[in-house]
């Protein structure tokens, strides 16, 4: 898999998310992209019960790009620990309901169309939490390159070409420490978690 960057895209006042995604879809099709199905990334978070001592959070994420894997990230103080397992991990979490309870009302997902354009794979995701629209996340993967440091300038150029020069493109927080590492699917998951956590903190509803 290639280096991927996740970018928030602003939804103007009085405009809906669907409208913005349609607009972006028209733009990328005009550039010569082909639509290759849909995608979905979802995240459910679990809190440890008080009898286990200090509260820990486990985030369970799925990505349709890796349909056979379940990604889990355990937040414990300063350090995050991740485990990549197969589909049975979901059942295991249900068994653990004695110790971890799901925060159902914060279940959050990003879904939408998926495009291929040259060596790029572009996804326009509409983010919803509990059926409430929260915003738009754009995922761009440059498949041939595995090192963020080498390809960052190229990705910025692509994003600004696609989304307009007014968009500021910064390397995601998570990638900053991993610019010289080989990119892996879990790096995309961390980026989604970063954005999902930010969306959860924002109150107020938008119209989808």
């Amino acid at each position: 898999m290639g280096v991927t960057v996740l970018q928030q895209y602003p939804v103007p006042e009085h405009k809906t998310g669907t409208y913005v995604i349609e607009l972006l879809t028209k733009r990328i099709l005009a550039l010569g992209a082909t639509q290759q199905g849909q995608f979905l990334v979802d995240c459910e978070s679990y809190l440890s019960l008080p009898q286990m001592g200090s509260t820990k959070t486990v985030h369970i994420l799925h990505n349709s790009e890796q349909p056979a894997s379940v990604f889990s990230i355990l937040e414990s103080g300063t350090k995050n620990i991740h485990v990549i397992a197969d589909g049975l991990f979901d059942l295991l979490m249900m068994k653990l309901s004695q110790h971890y309870t799901s925060k159902k009302q914060t279940k959050i997902e990003s879904k939408g169309p998926r495009f291929e354009l040259g060596d790029f794979c572009v996804k326009f995701g509409s983010v919803t939490m509990n059926q409430n629209f929260k915003g738009i996340l754009i995922e761009v993967e440059y498949r041939p390159c595995v090192m963020a440091n080498a390809v960052w300038g190229l990705l910025r150029e692509f994003l600004q070409g696609l989304l307009g020069p007014s968009i500021t493109v910064q390397p995601p927080q998570h990638l900053l420490s991993r610019m010289n590492e080989i990119y892996a699917p879990i790096d995309t998951i961390y980026q989604y978690l970063e954005h999902f956590s930010a969306y959860r903190k924002v109150t107020g509803l938008r119209s989808a």
Partner: peptide
């Protein structure tokens, strides 16, 4: 070795506007 990191000497861009190749 700098295939992805070095822009084109002529047009100064990473990606060519039609081929979208570095």
């Amino acid at each position: 070795v700098n295939l992805f990191s070095e822009p084109c000497k002529k047009c100064g861009c990473h990606l060519h506007h039609t081929s979208l190749l570095p």
